[in-house]
């Protein structure tokens, strides 16, 4: 097993796993306690439109996806912040529109030869150094956001009206949170793909939430769990020659079911 991690690509994958896991732990915790899972799903799937556009115009797919995800994040933050009715339907439309746009744009791209499967199911074993730089950038942004605004984020998540009366700029903070979610989602897509991104964002925080009574330690525990899932998933995938992203999520899902049954059995 030590041999396995002697390979460069494996070391990159491992390093990427840690970066992705911390991003997942922090952003995933905020998504779960703010009940924004569906918003994250909308951004993740909608960002496929960005990949299609990037292929068509010949720019880097991940850059296209990031910009498009940020744009969708702004739209969704605006819609949800207005408290309009049928928010879930509107997000559903954005979700489907992005995917359709992505498919149409790749159809229109002459002789496309990019491995789209890697965006759908992730390609953590082939992360490049550039990917690592991008991930590190988002890692720093997300950590800075969570640390600097910890008090305000906690107050908004727990009781937004009270936070507003205490002078917290809820609008700005909420937009910030959705944009951080968009960036986080894009990074996680690189690891496990846009189909599975929701699992890595929600399973670790869901399990962690049961084990703690503070938001900070929930972030820490979910990051550690996420690292654990990624490492075990990577090892299993290389031993049995399985997809890395799907193996990671399988480990996470099995842990989720064990934890779920355990808590049911205990009560």
């Amino acid at each position: 097993m030590i041999d396995l991690f002697a390979f460069d690509f494996m070391q990159n994958a491992l390093f990427a796993s840690v970066l992705v896991s911390v991003i997942c732990g922090v952003i995933g915790t905020l998504i779960v306690i703010n009940r924004m899972v569906f918003i994250a799903g909308g951004i993740a799937h909608g960002s496929y439109g960005g990949i299609g556009l990037a292929l068509y115009f010949g720019i880097a797919p991940m850059l296209g996806a990031s910009l498009f995800a940020l744009f969708l994040g702004l739209v969704i933050a605006y819609i949800t912040h207005q408290n309009s009715t049928r928010i879930d339907s509107l997000i559903g439309v954005i979700w489907a529109f992005g995917m359709a746009l992505g498919i149409v744009m790749t159809d229109l791209t002459p002789g496309y030869n990019v491995d789209l499967m890697s965006y759908l199911f992730g390609a953590i074993l082939s992360v490049s150094n550039e990917d690592i730089y991008g991930m590190s950038g988002v890692f720093v942004l997300v950590l800075a956001f969570a640390l600097l605004f910890y008090k305000q984020l906690l107050a908004m998540s727990f009781d937004a009206q009270f936070a507003k009366l205490r002078g917290v700029n809820i609008t700005l903070l909420y937009f910030g949170l959705v944009l951080m979610t968009a960036l986080g989602v894009i990074i996680v897509i690189r690891a496990v793909g846009l189909i599975l991104v929701i699992a890595l964002l929600t399973i670790p925080p869901y399990i962690a939430e049961k084990m703690t009574n503070s938001m900070g330690s929930m972030m820490l525990i979910s990051s550690l769990l996420s690292v654990l899932f990624c490492v075990i998933g990577l090892i299993i995938s290389s031993f049995f020659n399985l997809s890395a992203g799907a193996s990671i999520i399988m480990i996470g899902s099995i842990s989720f079911f064990i934890q779920f049954l355990y808590s049911k059995w205990r009560t």
Binding site: L154, S157, E209, S214
Partner: peptide
């Protein structure tokens, strides 16, 4: 939000 992870003091 039944499981919200927060202590009384916080």
């Amino acid at each position: 939000n039944k499981d919200f992870p927060i202590k009384v003091l916080d």
